[in-house]
């Protein structure tokens, strides 16, 4: 079996003395959507931050496309093809939508206008407001700007930390549709979601995390069908 595109194996670590992650493993293949769900405090966001290098791992390793990136800083990982959308503070509020995208492409030396056109194509609502300050947009549109900003580096792996937090159900469906579209272009997606049921619907692979370790790992549909998972984590 070949190694998956992203593979974070047996991660142990936390912010202080106590570990939050206790042997968590996440893998995502090219073009797959992987979703991390679990109860509050399970270490979902921490696991993603560990993959992105925002947290020192005591144990475990992270590889991207076969290359060991465990020792790299988040900035270096961006250059290796990771894109990260934080849960909050994920835009530049007093800059225009267009400038937000430009800043996303800051590390690129080449012409990024076609990438920008693709982002606008993906998010037409945002394209109409390209000259408006991102801080003045609605919650859903801000999230679109945030995702767009991360896409500007042409990442091969896009990580989203609760992209639908605080947006209405309609906007949430719309965002998930866009995320599926992004995945179809061959970009791997790793996301943490609070709206577990809807997120698992679109997940190729789902991870149920409990206390910093994998409890269940299966395809999204299989997890949704598993009575045990339904009862304990999806509320019946």
């Amino acid at each position: 079996m070949t190694e998956p595109y992203l593979s974070a194996t047996d991660m142990h670590g936390g912010y202080g003395k106590a570990d939050i992650l206790n042997g968590c493993t996440l893998t995502v293949d090219k073009g797959q959507i992987a979703v991390i769900v679990g109860p509050n405090g399970a270490g979902k966001s921490t696991a993603m931050k560990a993959v992105f290098g925002m947290l020192n791992l005591r144990e475990g390793r992270v590889t991207l496309g076969g290359e060991d990136i465990t020792a790299l800083t988040p900035q270096e990982r961006v250059r290796k093809g990771m894109g990260f959308v934080p849960q909050t503070h994920n835009i530049f509020p007093t800059m225009t939508v267009e400038e937000n995208l430009e800043m996303g492409a800051f590390i690129r030396e080449d012409d990024f206008r076609d990438t920008m056109a693709q982002v606008y194509e993906l998010f037409p609502a945002v394209a109409d407001k390209r000259k408006q300050n991102a801080g003045e947009l609605s919650g859903g549109q801000r999230q679109q700007v945030a995702v767009g900003r991360a896409l500007m580096t042409k990442p091969s792996l896009l990580m989203l930390d609760e992209p639908t937090a605080g947006v209405s159900p309609i906007v949430m469906d719309e965002l998930f549709d866009r995320i599926i579209e992004v995945a179809r272009t061959g970009i791997s997606i790793l996301m943490v979601e609070q709206n577990a049921r809807q997120a698992l619907e679109i997940a190729d692979i789902g991870y149920v995390l409990v206390q910093g370790a994998n409890r269940y790992t299966d395809s999204g549909q299989a997890l949704l069908a598993d009575p045990e998972v339904r009862r304990t984590f999806l509320g019946g």
Binding site: Q75, E99, F106, I107
Partner: peptide
């Protein structure tokens, strides 16, 4: 200018500016 925009980005959101490679 690119440098000027980077300054504004850094002022707006330091962490995101770091992530963007500024």
């Amino acid at each position: 200018s690119r440098a000027g925009k980077a300054m504004r980005a850094y002022s707006d959101n330091e962490d995101l500016a770091l992530l963007s490679g500024i």
